[in-house]
Design a binder for these strands. Structure first.
Lengths: 105, 105
DNA sequence: CGGCTATATAACCCGAATGGCATGCTGACG
DNA sequence: CGTCAGCATGCCATTCGGGTTATATAGCCG
């Protein structure tokens, strides 16, 4: 699963994630919030789905979309390489926490 | 300064950041590592510069490019909204650390 | 000064991504 | 069963971004 930068580069897709952060939503609901056509929304949802950022739950004709955070966690891991550049004295604690995640006894 | 997702969506630009993470570099050096033309490299560097992700230090005809992490810190702040989705028991500690950054006594 | 080195900018080409409309598909319901 | 609701897909037009080559700019050095 490659890093989802290109998927997140699209403002509408980030807005979808923001909306799904509150609760799962139907396509029609997202369409309304985004202010674009229903097919447009469906296309963005497809991209998000194929990137693993959302998943669908079917309910009759309706589709509930909800978040899947794994790709965001990978993004976070990528960012970690740079994080020491803007965090100061917390570095040691962070390295300790990272180590704990590798071996969480 | 908007979130730099679109800037980071480009693999060559992420590679530039990776290279600059080790040390500042000259344009020619980056060009060689990226395997594209010198103007191509300069274009990417311009985009990175305008996004605040790198800065230049001039030295005669040479330009030393180096990292500027601020936009990455903003990205990190954006990610923070989602982080509770994949971190479990560390949440409380993280909230504590965030609070410390606001009021670091 | 003349020419070379290092980098930036300009002009152009091309593929890909986005947005819209029209249409297809599926399940509910009278 | 026929129709409607909810969503996906196909197709087209347009835009945008990244690549290259050619050229401009600036500073060193002989």
């Amino acid at each position: 699963m490659p890093l989802p930068f290109d998927v997140l580069a699209e403002p509408s897709r980030r807005k979808i994630l923001d909306l799904l952060l509150e609760r799962p939503r139907l396509v029609g609901e997202l369409t309304q919030q985004l202010g674009l056509s229903q097919p447009g929304t469906s296309k963005h949802l497809r991209v998000l789905r194929e990137a693993g950022l959302v998943q669908v739950r079917q309910d009759a004709q309706r589709r509930w979309y909800e978040l899947r955070p794994e790709p965001l966690a990978e993004l976070d891991a990528w960012l970690a390489h740079y994080r020491h550049l803007w965090t100061g004295r917390l570095d040691a604690l962070e390295r300790h926490l990272d180590a704990m995640e590798d071996d969480p006894r």
